[in-house]
Design a protein around this nucleic acid. Structure first.
Lengths: 199, 199
DNA sequence: GTCTATAGCCGGATAGAC
DNA sequence: GTCTATCCGGCTATAGAC
């Protein structure tokens, strides 16, 4: 068939794998399923990637690379207050989960798998480090912009934020209760905002 | 070999499966691994259980049945105040996770799997319903006993508690940062206690 | 009832034709 | 470079000897 560079092929396989992961889950993410999704032959896979695990590593690393920050950061642009910003950011995150539940669930599955796999465990740790960093920067930026301050280290509050979003996601994935999730998002925002002081 | 009743065999296989799940993860939880752990032959498995999925269902159901409430409820007995009780319950939960990380991770893996499997999806939903119920009862009991009240429906606050524990667990599993997890547990307790009023 | 043996399938990875 | 064909191992489940 058409001649494709290794780089392009890796990208095509990567994109196909992300789609399969979201749609069918990690257990169904076989090399065969990936090449079928990408419209390639099985052998092409191992021409572009040394192994299946190598591709899984790429997917985790792409999250570490910071693909998803744009969404949250965008909310901050037109916020009228830090309270508003935090509430809208959490609501926006919930919308993101509801729009593409498979994607979020796939990421959980992948993280759990990475933690069980010695070669990938480090990546999972870095992934969470990255989450925490991004959240901390957001909180810092917020306090800075509106001339307020947090009563606890933003590193700690960032962990609280990530915990809340993870918990929110797991609960909604399990029962798909939209109304309850929205109330939880509001409670989560309050939990963070309790730590915001004047200054 | 020795003659074992079907009921006993199911219990032995169940216990073996829980051990394998905690130690090696869901991906490694094959019928072969289970019977090896239980010291049985492969055929014995299908004599006691119709299929592997049936056993997985039993494990999820055991959580729904409420095996783990004892731990949290026990903390309430000798609490001097609701603040004390909430803080100690969360610290105790964190200890539980640290004592047996594989167990908690196994439960996450199993829940994710159940959500992807039509036959088991209902069980995962019930599992979270159960979590929320237990947490709500705990909160109600607490307010009752110390003659205080919550400023929001305990059903909503229960969701907040479960989200926080899930998030706490995932973060600690990813980076194993004990100190950060303890600070997070304290922040989580505060997040809940903000909603406690006099009355 | 409990075992060994095997059917039948799907997985990752590779050999070798073109 | 890209394909088809195949190796080989692990899986769930079952048949059939004892």
């Amino acid at each position: 068939m058409a001649r494709i560079s290794v780089t392009d092929r890796r990208e095509l396989l990567f994109a196909a794998a992300v789609r399969v992961l979201a749609r069918d889950g990690l257990a169904a993410l076989s090399t065969r399923a990936i090449v079928a999704e990408a419209g390639m032959s099985l052998a092409s896979f191992h021409y572009a990637y040394g192994s299946r695990e190598e591709l899984l590593g790429d997917i985790v690393a792409s999250v570490v690379g910071g693909e998803r920050e744009a969404g949250l950061a965008g909310v901050l642009g037109d916020a009228s207050s830090p309270e508003d910003a935090v509430r809208r950011a959490l609501a926006a995150y919930l919308d993101l989960v509801r729009t593409d539940p498979g994607r979020e669930q796939g990421m959980f599955e992948l993280t759990q798998h990475a933690l069980r796999t010695p070669t990938l465990a480090r990546l999972a740790t870095e992934q969470y480090q990255r989450y925490h960093e991004v959240a901390a920067e957001l909180l810092d930026h917020l306090a800075d912009r509106f001339d307020r301050r947090w009563d606890s280290p933003t590193a700690d509050l960032a962990r609280l934020v990530i915990s809340l979003t993870d918990g929110l996601t797991l609960a909604w994935l399990a029962d798909r209760d939209d109304a309850a999730a929205e109330r939880l998002a509001a409670l989560a925002a309050d939990a963070v905002l309790t730590h915001l002081e004047d200054s």
